[in-house]
Design a protein around this nucleic acid. Structure first.
Lengths: 257, 257
DNA sequence: CTTGCAGATTGACATAGGTCAAGGCGTAAT
DNA sequence: ATTACGCCTTGACCTATGTCAATCTGCAAG
C-alpha cells in the first residue's frame, strides 16, 4: 500500500517524533511501508524477533500474552499508537503477541534505522527515553490495578475512566466486546457479567454496549479512583501541555486496565 | 557522607553510564551526595515529586504501592541498582513508594542534571532509553506472572529463579522475610505458608529461610518456567554479553516476582 | 534463665473468582 | 422468514485465596 503524505504527517505529530529534524525523519521513514490487515490477524507472537516498529494508523490492535493454555490481554491500542518500541530499542524478542481486532492499517518502520537515529540524535534519543518511561509507568499502573483491586473495583474504575475519556456524559459506549474487556480487566467473561449485575446496585445499567451511570457519586465511592493508578485524560487533549504529560502505553491514547 | 572514588567507579560500571564521557559523568555526579539510612526508612512516598535519581550502593530497598488500605511490593532492589528513573526522565511524581529494608547507602544524583545530559549526549540518551526499555519489559513480565499464574505457580517459579541466581545448588536461602516475599508474589503470608506446605509434595522442604529442592524435575513440571516471563540469569554475569542483555528492573539484579 | 515480641504457621471459616453447562439474544447468511 | 452462529448471560458448583484467631518458634532484652 502506498505511503501517503497525510499518513506521514500523522506519524510526525506523535510525541516520539515531534522534535525530530526533517532529515532524520526521512531517514527513519525511508524503508517504511504501510500495510492493511484483516480482523484477527496475528501480527506478532510472543518470542518473535522484532525487526520493525509498528504504528497503528487505523483500526485497533490487542497486545496479549499467554502461558500454559491461559491467555490475557495486556493492552488495547487505538490510532495513532506505536507498539513494541521496547523490543526495538533493545533489539530483543517480543514479550507480547499482537493481533488486529478489526481491519487495520499499520505502518512499519525499520528498527535498525530507528536505533541508528537514536544513537546519532540526542533529542530523538531523549524522546525515545521519555516514550519508554511513559510505557513503563503505564505498566506500573496496570500492576497496581491488578494487585491491589478486586474485579468489581477494576470494572468500576474502568467505567469512570471511560466516562471521562468519552466526554463525561452519563451514558458511555463500551469500545470493545465484553469478552475482550474481561480479558483486559483480568477476569472471565462470566465474572464480568456478574460484576455488571452487581453494579446495578450502584446505579449502573447496561443495554448491550451502552452503559449508563445514573449515580456517579455512588459509583465513585465504590471505585475510589486514584490518579496514581488511573489516568483520567479528557478527550480534548489539545488543551494538555504535551511536554510534561506522561506518555501512556504507546502514546497516551491506549485504553488499558 | 563523603563520596568516595570507589563508589563512583561502581556507579560508572552500570550499563546506564558505561558509554558516557568522563566530562559528562563529572557533570552528572557533580551535585551528588551519598547518604546512609537506617532500616525501614521511607525514602519516597507515592505521589511525591522526584528531584533525584537514586542509586542503591549497599543494603536493600523495597518499591511498593498502596490503595485503599491494601499495599503490595512491586520490586526488591539489591546493590548496585538505580531506581525511579522513569519519574526523573519525565520530571513527574513517583508512582511508587520506596523504603529501605535494611540499613542502606544511597547515592542521589540531580534529576535536572541528568535530563540535561540526556538532551545533550545522544549515546547517554540511548543508554537511558535502553534502561527504560528494560524496566518496561520487567514490568511486562511481572504482569504476565501475576495475571496468568496462580500463587503456587508463582512461588515455584520464584524458587527456580532463585536457585539459578544463587548458583544452582539444591539448597537456597530466601533473601527476605517471608512476609515480604508474600507481598512480592501477590499473596498473604498465610497463603505463602500453605503454598510452601503444598510444595512438600513436589520435593521442596523448608527450614526457616533454607529451602531445599530435592526433585528439580518435578518442581519444574509444576512451575513450567518460561523465558518470556522469568529471567534465569546465572550469578556470573561477567560471562553475559552486556550489549543485548535485557536490562531488568533497574539494572539486571532486581529480585522480582 | 526468663520474658517478650515479631514473624511464621495452622485451622476454621468466608469470600472472590473460575468452571461447566444450559439457555437467551441478536445478527448475518441462506 | 429461517437458520446458524457467536456472544452474552445465568445458575450450580468448585477451587483459590483472603480473614481471623490461636499457637508456635526463635531471638533478643532484661
Amino acid at each position: 500500500m502506498p505511503m501517503r503524505a497525510v499518513d506521514l504527517e500523522r506519524v510526525k505529530a506523535l510525541p516520539l517524533f515531534s522534535g525530530i529534524s526533517d532529515r532524520l525523519f526521512r531517514d527513519v521513514t525511508a524503508g517504511a511501508f504501510l500495510q492493511r490487515f484483516p480482523a484477527g490477524t496475528a501480527l506478532l507472537t510472543e518470542g518473535d524477533p522484532v525487526d520493525f516498529l509498528y504504528v497503528l494508523m487505523n483500526g485497533s490492535v490487542e497486545l496479549g500474552a499467554s502461558w500454559n493454555d491461559k491467555d490475557t490481554t495486556l493492552a488495547i491500542l487505538t490510532p495513532v499508537s506505536i507498539f513494541i518500541l521496547a523490543a526495538v530499542v533493545l533489539d530483543a524478542d517480543s514479550l507480547m503477541s499482537a493481533r488486529t481486532i478489526e481491519r487495520s492499517d499499520i505502518l512499519m518502520l525499520s528498527g535498525e534505522a530507528l536505533r541508528r537515529a537514536m544513537n546519532e540524535d540526542a533529542v530523538f534519543g531523549f524522546a525515545v527515553a521519555q516514550e519508554m518511561a511513559g510505557c513503563y509507568r503505564g505498566m506500573v499502573r496496570s500492576i497496581k490495578n491488578q494487585k491491589l483491586r478486586g474485579g468489581l473495583e477494576r470494572l468500576a474504575n474502568y467505567l469512570l475512566t471511560q466516562q471521562v475519556a468519552q466526554g463525561g456524559a452519563a451514558t458511555i459506549t463500551l469500545p470493545h466486546e465484553k469478552r475482550l474487556l474481561a480479558s483486559l480487566l483480568g477476569m472471565t467473561p462470566e465474572n464480568l457479567s456478574r460484576a455488571f449485575a452487581t453494579l446495578a446496585d450502584y446505579g449502573v445499567t447496561v443495554h448491550g454496549p451502552e452503559v449508563t451511570i445514573a449515580r456517579p457519586v455512588v459509583l465513585d465511592r465504590l471505585a475510589k479512583p486514584e490518579p496514581l493508578i488511573d489516568h483520567h485524560l479528557p478527550p480534548d487533549l489539545g488543551e494538555i501541555s504535551t511536554a510534561d504529560r506522561e506518555r501512556w502505553s504507546s502514546n497516551g491514547r491506549t485504553r488499558a486496565a
